[in-house]
Amino acid sequence: MNPIKVLLVDDSAVVRQVLGAALAEDPQVRVLAAVANPLLALEPMKTCWPDVIVLDIEMPVMDGLSFLKKIMAERPTPVIICSTLTEAGARPTLAALAAGAVAAIAKPKSNLRELLHDTKTELLHAIRLAAASRPRVAPVARHPLETAAPGQRLVAIGASTGGTQALESVLAALPANAPGTVIVQHMPEKFTAAFAERLDSICAVHVREAGARQLVRRGEVLIAPGGRHLQIKRIGNNFWAETLDGPLVSRHKPSVDVLFRSVAQAAGARARGIILTGMGDDGAAGLLAMREAGADTIAQDEASCVVYGMPKEAVKKGAVARTLALGQIAAAICAA
């Protein structure tokens, strides 16, 4: 197998030196170049196009987001954002994910040499995942559907790699009176609140990060907070969303399986489960539980996925009643 060709773009000489050396130790990775800004990256890209780009956001000459948009417009390539995961940095990183980046990992602000060695395993995993992905800028429907079918239903959605784009595409197409929707998107802490805020600004439905305990209402979307599981309980004729701490489930917190299993128990045939693009198998078992409880279950099709991992595993388990292209999912959410 040919090594994965990686281009490292970061204005910190220490980051370039330490990460470049760490990546070079892996025989499955070949570092094409480690450069200080996007303009310097253009030269090595003329002779050898990278399989994966590891990109900082805040840089002189040209910022990472502008470079990312240029790359995605000209030749879509897997890009990993490597930045500090702070509240102040969440919005630009989310903007990068919306623009086509396939992943974001933490870059420490201090003790760089020591801490970047701890980042090596996470970065190598992200690089292998990115190399297997098919990045694209998902078209976003800015005009929501005209009507939504009557009847109270609960919609549960799970997503991972590529999910930020996919969710933006789906939610922006929903009408203001769409069914109450709960979502698990694999995302670090401090990102989910900013992600919900961004979606709320472009959607007719109201999107927010889920709190400790709240009612799921028509026209509202609740996103599981990073680092906490989200589950649904039924009280009378209403559905309530609750967040809780606990161990990793299917290697994730929040876990799609936790959400889907709780929806299967609480909502049964009144629910619709949707699994979108993502690596791994989180959500497959939970979606099967939903289908066995009488829920309608949908998987995003392979052609429109950035990573056809989670949907594929759900299909293999027999958890999926039907497979739809990304552009068809908003209409499916609103169908009776």
Rank of each mutant, 00 (worst) to 15 (best):
L112Y: 12
V52C: 06
E114N: 10
L23H: 05
A224D: 07
L222V: 00
L276R: 03
L199K: 03
R30C: 02
P108E: 03
E146R: 13
E168I: 05
H206T: 14
C334E: 14
P247G: 10
E197A: 14
E122S: 14
I235F: 11
L97T: 10
G227N: 07
A96S: 15
V15T: 15
P44C: 10
V9Y: 04
A90V: 03
P175G: 07
D51C: 00
G89P: 01
A204S: 13
K70I: 13
E58S: 13
T86N: 12
K316F: 01
A126N: 06
T119C: 15
K253Y: 07
A314V: 06
L129D: 06
L32M: 11
R128D: 01
R142N: 05
T164N: 05
L7H: 07
C203G: 02
D245A: 14
G163P: 11
E74D: 11
S83V: 00
P78L: 11
A13L: 13
K70E: 07
H143Y: 00
A95L: 07
I232C: 12
L112G: 06
S66I: 14
V216H: 04
P311I: 02
V140L: 10
C48G: 05
V18H: 00
A106F: 08
L65G: 00
M59N: 08
A130P: 08
A267Y: 04
P225D: 03
K312C: 02
V263N: 06
V184D: 05
L167Y: 08
G309A: 10
F195A: 12
M59Y: 09
I235Q: 15
A103I: 12
K120Q: 13
S304V: 02
A335P: 00
P76N: 02
H143Q: 12
A33P: 10
P254H: 08
V15P: 01
V256F: 11
A131E: 03
T147Y: 13
T93A: 08
A319R: 03
Q165I: 09
L94S: 00
N238K: 12
R198H: 03
L32S: 06
L8K: 02
E25W: 00
G318D: 00
A36C: 09
Q185T: 14
S250V: 14
A101C: 05
F191V: 09
R91G: 00
E25S: 09
E87H: 08
G226H: 07
V79M: 04
T121H: 12
T86L: 03
Q17T: 15
L65D: 01
A24D: 13
A303F: 09
A149Q: 14
A95E: 05
